[in-house]
């Protein structure tokens, strides 16, 4: 089997996802070619053919043009499978390519089992084993699902792709994530609040527990979206990635995007009323309890101990 890997590039830099794409081809026991809209100064570590279009001409974000370039490479290489990272770049571009190829798409693939692709359902509470009924297949791969077992050091054979045509979207540039605020990556203890805290006022008890443990408080996405705290405290794919000695998840169900931001923590305690919440997958301890009762009691005990 031959797989075309679609690498990612943003703000003049190659993104780290290409190593995970390569690991996927290892798991599929397939040969790989790669595609990148990027530049020659910043090539992925890859032992194979790399089709490279210049981002200065094609635009870093220009899905209609990237799609056309990909279709040219697919016509030349005839891969059976085209793999993207499941990212803001990948999930935007993949369906465009899939439709043009009459290919089916499996999104957010988390595993390969006996040659079949596994995708999550309902926030990873369930999963499905899938089979394509089209000649070609497009996949997007969940970040972190195909962690490389060894680092690759190789220079690809670069094939330049000329860029023609314009897109239907005008891309004006980037706005950086809100600067300032808290650098959670330095905290040894993080106590994090999720939707399960119920209301903004309850964030205070989470902050108090963090203070008792000389740590920082943080939040999952819904808490930030509701404006209960600011974005600099958000943990997850679209926030900060953290790895403290202790992470206490309060009322966090454990969406994949949140887990990706905290699963490298040394020790995880989850407090949740739902015993089956996906946070249990990464928690060393899951306390099944109403956090409004448990957190003040725990804070009190810690304060007494530290006094």
């Amino acid at each position: 089997m031959k797989i075309l890997l679609v690498a990612e590039y943003r703000e003049g830099k190659l993104l780290g996802t290409s190593a995970e794409l390569i690991e996927f081809t290892v798991r599929m026991d397939a040969q790989a070619v790669m595609f990148l809209v990027g530049n020659k100064q910043n090539l992925p570590q890859f032992d194979g053919r790399l089709y490279l279009a210049d981002a200065a001409q094609a635009g870093e974000f220009n899905p209609a043009v990237h799609k056309q370039l990909l279709l040219e490479v697919i016509a030349r290489e005839q891969p059976q499978l085209i793999a993207f990272p499941h990212s803001s770049y990948g999930w935007d571009l993949a369906p465009r390519v899939a439709l043009a190829l009459d290919a089916t798409q499996f999104s957010e693939v988390v595993d390969v089992q006996e040659g079949h692709l596994i995708v999550p359902v309902c926030n990873a509470k369930l999963q499905r084993r899938m089979k394509a009924e089209t000649e070609k297949t497009v996949v997007t791969l969940q970040a972190g699902a195909f962690t490389p077992t060894q680092s690759i050091s190789a220079t690809p054979e670069v094939i330049d792709l000329p860029v023609t045509g314009a897109g239907d979207i005008d891309f004006q540039g980037y706005e950086a994530a809100a600067a300032g605020g808290v650098d959670l990556s330095k905290a040894k203890v993080i106590v994090s609040a999720g939707r399960g805290i119920g209301k903004a006022e309850n964030l205070e008890m989470v902050a108090n527990l963090a203070k008792a443990l000389k740590g920082e408080y943080a939040a999952s996405r819904p808490v930030v979206d509701a404006d209960w705290t600011d974005h600099s405290r958000q943990v997850g794919t679209t926030g900060q990635t953290v790895a403290p000695k202790l992470y206490i998840a309060c009322g966090i169900s454990g969406a994949i995007q949140h887990l990706a931001g905290m699963k490298k923590s040394d020790f995880v305690i989850a407090i949740n009323t739902d015993k089956d919440a996906p946070i249990g997958e990464v928690a060393d301890v899951l306390a099944v309890c109403d956090l409004k009762q448990l957190i003040p009691l725990l804070t009190e005990k810690i304060n007494a101990q530290q006094a």
């Binding site: 009459d102 359902v121 369930l126 084993r129 089979k131 089209t134 249990g280 990464v282």
Partner: peptide, 17 residues
């Protein structure tokens, strides 16, 4: 264009208490 072969609960990887 695609078929679900089977649905299952993910294997519990966490051996959490």
């Amino acid at each position: 264009q695609q078929k679900t072969i089977s649905m299952a609960f993910p294997e519990k990887r966490g051996s959490g208490l």
